[in-house]
C-alpha cells in the first residue's frame, strides 16, 4: 500500500509543530499537512485530499454535520481527535479514535498504525461478499424488505441490516436500485428474477 498522507488541524502552534515533527521522523507518511483551523483547512481543501485526519474537535463544534458530510465526500478514512479535556460524547463519537494530549507520542503512533492496518484489512475485505451477504443481496435485489428477508433466512432484522451495511461498504453502493444493477452484473441474479 502507498504511504498515506495525514492532515493535522490544531490551533495551538506549539502542539501542531510538535506532532508534525514527531510524525515526520517516523517516515510513515507521504505527506504531512498542517492547519490551525478547520476553516482554513476547508478553504484550501481539494477533492483528492489525504486519508488520515488528526483534528482538535473544538474546531468542529456546531459544524458537526458539515464535518461528517465533508468526510463522507472526501477520501478521509480515519479521523482521530486531539483532546485536551473532557468533551461531550456526541462530539467524540464522530471520531474513530482519540489521542489525549497527555498521552505519549508512541501511543499516538500506535493508534495511527492501527488505523492504517485496519484500512488495509478493509480494502482486502472489499473484494468478496460472503455467501450469506450474496444471499441477502439477491433478496434485496428482488425487492424484499429487511423484515421479509429476516423471516426468510431466519435472522433478526438487526442482523440483516448489518449485512446490508457490510454489502454497501464492500461494494461502495448504497441504494437498492444500485445494488440490483450490481447483483446482475455479478451474475448473482438474472434480470427475469427481478422483473418477476
Amino acid at each position: 500500500m502507498a504511504k498515506p498522507s495525514i492532515i493535522i488541524i490544531e490551533p495551538s502552534a506549539i502542539v501542531n509543530d510538535a506532532i508534525k515533527e514527531h510524525l515526520k521522523k517516523t517516515n510513515i507518511f507521504n505527506n504531512i499537512n498542517t492547519f490551525y483551523s478547520w476553516d482554513s483547512f476547508i478553504h484550501s481543501a481539494r477533492q483528492n485530499m489525504s486519508q488520515l485526519l488528526l483534528i482538535n474537535p473544538l474546531q468542529i463544534v456546531n459544524k458537526e454535520k458539515e464535518f461528517e458530510k465533508f468526510c463522507q465526500q472526501h477520501p478521509i478514512d480515519y479521523k482521530i481527535a486531539i483532546v485536551y479535556h473532557l468533551l461531550p460524547n456526541h462530539l467524540i463519537s464522530i471520531f474513530d479514535d482519540v489521542f489525549y494530549i497527555y498521552d505519549s507520542i508512541d501511543k499516538l503512533l500506535q493508534k495511527i498504525k492501527l488505523c492504517i492496518a485496519s484500512k488495509e484489512i478493509n480494502t482486502k475485505k472489499k473484494q468478496n461478499l460472503t455467501e450469506r451477504e450474496q444471499e441477502i443481496l439477491k433478496l434485496l435485489a428482488k425487492g424484499l424488505s429487511i423484515k421479509e428477508i429476516a423471516q426468510k433466512v431466519f435472522l433478526s432484522p438487526h442482523t440483516v441490516l448489518s449485512h446490508r451495511k457490510n454489502i454497501s461498504a464492500k461494494t461502495g453502493i448504497k441504494t437498492i436500485a444500485g445494488l440490483t444493477v450490481y447483483a446482475v452484473s455479478m451474475n448473482l441474479i438474472s434480470i427475469e428474477e427481478i422483473e418477476s
Partner: peptide, 14 residues
C-alpha cells in the same frame, strides 16, 4: 446518493 452509486457502478463494476 443515487448519483454516487451510478458513478461507482460505472467506474468499478461495469
Amino acid at each position: 446518493e443515487k448519483l454516487s452509486d451510478l458513478k461507482t457502478l460505472l467506474m468499478h463494476h461495469v
